[in-house]
Write a protein that binds this DNA or RNA. Structure first.
Lengths: 151, 151
DNA sequence: TCATTTCATTTGTATAGACAATAATAAAAA
DNA sequence: TTTTTATTATTGTCTATACAAATGAAATGA
């Protein structure tokens, strides 16, 4: 559906504004679909994201600031996300012995198992969306989004 | 910045996944910039969105379901957004006399004034982003995002 | 040593989104 | 008319983001 239909707009929307609306709405759709995948596993997409980061550490503990650095939303509240993962036994948390200001977070076997079960579903989700584009278009879309952001 | 740098990823990211990350991160950047514009006016982007919808009604009252239909996030809580606009005297709310289940929401002079003051800043925000692309690229980006969502 | 500054994390208090449950009214059916 | 169903909006509870303030530990300097 075109963005005008989604917003039930009667007047044409300027192309510069349309980009923003298209990005916002596409983001919304992606998040909705992704949360549907995660729902049976009782984790949110943000919690999933933290688990992924921890798995990426390959056994090395991650402290809070490292996790935050690797998250999309840098200002989100890592402490409270980890709190919720702790309750579900998906991570462990302990104070770093060398520097007691730091926290060492590790993903547990249980957490890794959930990630493993989710892997094919997540890949399928990603591909089912990008399948609508050709290989060239996929590259082009990534390029345009980066150009749009940066310079 | 490329998405790999933002996420401090050491391994290359699959293009299908990269689209999702690029959309999420671009959305995040847009929202952040936009909130900076709105901050001095003490309204959130969602509240602004509701005000815009009400202005679009050109004097006709809008009920809750109409507002919701025109919002990007259809499941957001319109009642509580309107509550906050009411406190600031940006809207009025009264029960519809023909159908007392319905609510008639109208933007006030004060609300319209704020919108008017924001208009040039909002347009400037939109253009400062899209200026990085050529006219063709802007059309192409909109096209690709719509194609990515649909079909 | 003691005071000050910096660092790493946590907590408090707003905001909004998701979703289910409820309430009130109107419309339809018996 | 009375009961049932549908519509419209509100409320409750959980999630997360944003951002400022506070805490506690380490490093630095007088």
């Amino acid at each position: 559906m075109k963005i005008e239909e989604i917003l039930k707009s009667t007047i044409p929307i300027d192309n510069s504004k349309k980009i923003i609306l298209n990005i916002l709405y596409t983001h919304h759709m992606i998040a909705e679909n992704f949360n549907d995948i995660l729902k049976p596993y009782d984790i949110s997409s943000e919690q999933y994201n933290v688990l992924r980061i921890l798995r990426g550490q390959k056994g090395n503990p991650a402290n809070m600031s490292l996790i935050q650095d690797r998250m999309l939303a840098k200002t989100s509240n890592t402490t409270r996300l980890v709190d919720k993962l702790l309750i579900k036994d998906f991570v462990t948390r302990k104070v770093c012995s060398e520097n007691r200001r730091k926290i060492e977070v590790l993903v547990t076997k249980k957490g890794l198992d959930v990630l493993k079960e989710l892997d094919p579903k997540v890949i399928n989700h990603e591909n089912s969306l990008s399948n609508k584009l050709t290989a060239d278009e996929i590259i082009q879309l990534n390029h345009l989004l980066e150009k749009y952001r940066n310079h």
